[in-house]
Structures are given as C-alpha cells and as structure tokens.
Design a protein around this nucleic acid. Structure first.
Length: 393
RNA sequence: GGGGGGAUGCCCGAGUGGUUAAAGGGGACGGGCUGUAAACCCGUUGGCUCUGCCUACGCAGGUUCGAAUCCUGCUCCCCCCA
C-alpha cells in the first residue's frame, strides 16, 4: 500500500466528526513512525455494545496501518464517574464490580481490535497518585475552564449539583494521555472537551499535544437517544445471536442508514426495500460476533417468531408442579420471573398462549394434563415448555 | 454561621385532611394494525392464597373517626446571604 500521509489521514478521518487541530493528524503521519492511539473506556457496566464498537472499529483502522493502540481501562476513573453528557451525578459503582467489568471489557474489545498491536493499561497504575501530584495536576486548570464544558454549564445554570469530584474527571482523563504519551486520542463527540483538555495538560507536562478524533454517537435501537446500557436501548456484543438479531430488527427504518455508515463496510442502498436492508444489517452484525452459521440460525428463529408467528425450535423447559390442576398465575410467575399479579394481567389481556392457542383470561386453573409437554407463551417472544417432574416416572 | 425550599409509584411530575393504589406525561409490557420497524389505536403498569386482603407518598413517632396531606424529631438534597 503506497499511501501518502495526506491520503492516509483522509481515510482515517472518514466518518469522524472532528479531527483537531486541522491538519495535525497528517503532520503526525508524515513523521513516518507508528503513532500511539489512545482510547479510554470506563468499565462502569459489564458489556461493550455496538455504540462502543464505532470507536473500536476506527482504532482497528489505525492498527491496520501499523499504528499502536493503547487501550486504557478506566478502573480508577470509573470510580469518579464521567459526567460527560450527564444531566445528573452518576451513581457510585462498586470497586469489585469495576474489576469484574474490566476483565470482560478487554476480551470483548478484542473482538474488534488486533491484540498484537494493542497495549492494555489500567489507569489505576498512575492515577492512584500522591496528593502532591494531584495538586500539581489540579493547578493546571481553572474552574471557569472546566465549566466551559457544555453539560457542566447547563447543570450550573440550572442550579443542579456538580460535585468537585466530577469537576476533576476531565483532568484525570487528560492525565491518562500524559501517562501513556498519546499521539492521538479517540472518543465519541461527547468526549471532545475531555480530549482537547488532554492537549493542554500534555503540554504542561512537557509533551507534544495529542491530536484528537471524535466519532459520531450511535443512536440506540429506539432511534432517539444514544445507545447506552442504562437506557436499555443497546445491543451488546456478547448477547445471544437471536437476541441481537431481534433487537436490530427493531431499529427504526429511519435510523438504519446511520447503522450502515458507522457499523458496516457496505454502503446503505436507499433503493433497496427496508426489510431487506434491515435483515442484511442484522445478519452481518450477528455474523461478526457469532459467525455466519449463528446468523443464519438467528434469522430463521426471527422468521418463525415474527413472520410465521410460530414457536422457536429450542424452548427452555420448566417443571410442572405436582397436582391435578395447575394455578396459572403462580405457574407463569415462577416460570417467567414476573409477579403473579402481572401474570394475571397478561392472562386477562390475552397475552398468554398455550401451544399457540390464546388462553381465555377467565380460566385461572388448568388440568395438569393439558400442560404437560405443552408450550406456554407470553407475548411474542417468551416461551416455556412444561414437563411433569421426573420423580413421577 | 443565618435564612428559605424540597424528598411522591421504573423515571419525571400533580396532589396540602375523606371514593387516592394516588392526576398527567415518559418508559415498559399486552392486544390491534403491519413486509421488520416506526407511526397510529386500545389496554395494563405495588404485591398476594385476588369479586377480597395487605403494603405504599424520605425515616421514626404523634394528632384525628380518617393523613401523602397537620404536628414533633431525624436523615439526605437544593438555593440564597455570610
């Protein structure tokens, strides 16, 4: 590949929202050495979802051009909680949970990254610093500077609480750049302020400032808010294939082009029927994380459930309690993990089917014989097959 | 240090003594519609051994026939002045 720095820079900043300062990346590439590309992830939740992969895929592109990725697990910053884009203080996360999450993050990140060109660091390595060192860092920015940040200024003018710890967060992230001597830092657009602050802090520590690249935020499957675990509109990379497929089919048609652009290599074709495009999207993403085989199976599963309105071929089994008759609310409650009041409501609303046949909400008790070996269905997607306990035979 | 305001169901948010399990909205769930979706329409949304019972409006007490609503104490939060 004979790329000039200019063409390489142009390729690498494709899809990015900002590449700052203007021309900086190209100048760095012109130095002809492998660059250190930094990405920080705070392991506040257990799973990496498609939203994270937008940035990870960009990192991968850097790796494919011989650059070196420094993946920072923010085990220490996770304790602070990134206020970016937040309208309120984050809840505290249990340190043990952070550790557990950190483990899974790394393995999940390698679904997108080239392990041989990745250096994984935890920022507790350097952020667990003496107070004196923190003083030195804290002197480098003023409250006014930090309050410049959009989300802070909103909270400030709305008179909402901002803790001093939160104010410190951008500085800690910036210090990560110093610690790993980053040449480039990637992040979502909501990270722009933090990334830029990294430049100032690096210079204060006598380093060359990093350049920054911000990627668009992937909308969640509701098509409205950003994809995030806490909003429940995410698709996790380790979720089961059928789950991923189903969720992706729920993405609003209007949001699909963005998914194509940010997650796939093939372009979105507006002339193609929406269903087909969406299927292709779901198929290729499931295949990426689970393989072609699983993707085909997931699609077949989806067709059976939603197109033919049938049942999946594998259904979890649950034991049938002893007795001649079975009290449905109790059975549904224990088998599906809902409250028995909710089970009653579902029955009353016609949301429960037995072997595909809708149950009349008035029948709360059924003979056990009718349930043995039968499949109970709640809504469109939840199934359980009942069997009399083995001790009968 | 002084003064003021607040804490309501998954979330936001009304309600200031009596059909209040608590308006309204969001979300979620179920049904309908549909080429997946979205939009739209209808319904549900504390629990239970469910035509009734129990628990609930920050926590603990009190007043009252009766309190989320009044009183006392406590905890937490916000704002203003210093």
């Amino acid at each position: 590949m004979t790329e000039t720095p200019a063409s390489e820079a142009q390729f690498l900043r494709r899809n990015a929202v900002d590449a700052l300062p203007e021309g900086a990346l190209e100048r760095q590439l012109a130095e002809g050495r492998p660059l250190r590309i930094k990405l920080g992830i705070d392991p506040t939740t257990a799973d990496i979802h498609l939203g994270h992969t937008v940035v990870l895929r960009k990192l991968r592109e850097f790796q494919e051009r011989g650059h070196h990725v420094v993946l920072i697990i923010g085990d220490y910053t996770a304790r602070v909680g990134d206020p970016s884009g937040r309208s309120s203080t984050r809840p505290q996360v249990d340190p043990r949970e952070i550790d557990a999450n950190a483990e899974t993050y790394v393995s999940q990140a390698f679904k997108a990254l080239d392990e041989s060109r990745t250096e994984v660091r935890r920022n507790s390595e350097w952020l667990d610093m003496p107070m004196e060192e923190l003083f030195r860092l804290a002197r480098l920015a003023t409250v006014a500077q930090i309050l410049e940040r959009d989300d802070f200024s909103k909270r400030w003018s709305a008179r909402e609480p901002i803790s001093i710890l939160e104010l410190l967060y951008p500085l800690l992230q910036a210090y990560d750049s110093v610690a790993v001597r980053a040449d480039v830092e990637l992040g979502g657009t909501d990270q722009k302020f933090n990334l830029l602050l990294g430049r100032d802090i690096q210079q204060a520590y006598g380093q060359k400032p990093q350049s920054i690249l911000t990627m668009p935020i992937l909308p969640g499957i509701d098509g409205v808010q950003k994809m995030s675990k806490s909003l429940g509109n995410y698709v996790g990379v380790t979720e089961p294939p059928e789950e991923q497929f189903g969720k992706l089919m729920r993405v609003p048609d209007a949001t699909m082009p963005v998914y194509y652009e940010l997650l796939l290599d093939e372009p979105f074709d507006p002339a193609r029927p929406a269903v087909e495009s969406k299927r292709a999207l779901a198929r290729s993403l499931v295949a990426r994380y689970h393989g072609e085989e699983a993707a085909r199976a997931a699609e077949a599963h989806f067709d059976r459930l939603h197109v033919e309105r049938g049942m999946p071929d594998e259904i979890d089994e649950a034991p049938l309690p002893a007795g001649e008759t079975v009290h449905l609310p109790a059975l549904i409650a224990s088998a599906f993990g809902v409250s028995s009041s909710e089970a009653r409501r579902l029955l009353a609303q016609g949301g429960v089917r037995l072997d595909g046949e809708r149950l009349d909400g008035a029948d709360l008790d059924l003979p056990a014989d009718r349930l043995d070996g039968a499949v109970l269905q709640i809504g469109k997607r939840r199934f359980k097959r009942f069997r009399r306990s083995a001790d009968v035979s």
